[in-house]
Amino acid sequence: MIQVEGLTKYYGALAAIRDLTFAIDRGEVIGFLGLNGAGKSTALRVLGCVLLPTSGRVTIDGFDVVRDPHEIRKRIGFLPDTPPLYTEMTVGAYLEFVARLRGVPSGRAKARTIEVEERTATRDVHDEVIGNLSHGFKQRIGIAQALVHNPKLLILDEPTSGLDPVQIVEMRQLIKGLKGEHTILLSSHILSEISQTCDRLLVIQGGEIVGQGSEQELATQMGSGGYLEIEIGGPSQGEGRAPVEKALQAVRAVAGVLSASVIREEAHVAQIKLDAPAALCPQVVRALVAADIDVMRVGRGSAQLESIFLKLTQTGGQPS
């Protein structure tokens, strides 16, 4: 669907993005993750055919952004960082205007307007003047205008910025609901929402991609592939620390376990934490059982995206 090769964009002498290369398949939901000023918006504006690249090649659906921008613009819906709303218009009139502008035939424009209003829960404000609406509504109308001509590709620049927690959840639901019908590219600097809505993340820092993949892949790439927390039957009277030591030895012997440590030790129960991918769980349990250790409970967790993100943006993608 999208092929980006060596995309570079300069503002004067300043490179906003440098040599970006990535590909996005049809139907994927991709998250652009980066701090403010990392170059997310610039990249999305190039993909949205608002800006032209300084160098590099960008094709969307087989069309080149420099040579055939019109063909691309028919296929994309773009929500810039501030929703492009004519505040003196009513919601219905505005959406119909956008639909016509993007080539929806006049007979269909009204029906499409009603469809997207229902989709984005803005039907009730159809006759309201946009300028009088709350920020949450404006953001949703921003999404509605991107959807109104039923584009194959949706480009949403920070769709949740400035929303309250309830609205963020609603927005997340909305984007999840759009999954499947559209290829979606969205950006954010809020990690939690992006990890929940996106199939794949592109982490961008200083205008360059410093990591890409799913949350788990990124974690593995950064050498923190998640962890296992195991509760074992602890030392009973007279045994001392022997069972705990035995357990540590057993799990350390499993290939793939990077480290193991005791995090809690009481009478009858001890908790150890393994730095290992969650997929290793069966091997670890088998090894413990073989070593005659009672396994009481196994918990698994992935590395927190925040920490991956911080690592990536601090180290520029080199595993620390």
């Binding site: 613009r73 773009f78 709303l85 004519y86 505040t87 502008l101």
Partner: peptide, 13 residues
């Protein structure tokens, strides 16, 4: 100033 130019820029016109 209001950013609505992006709407026009990203439309097939």
């Amino acid at each position: 100033q209001t950013g609505t130019i992006n709407l026009l820029y990203s439309s097939p016109i």
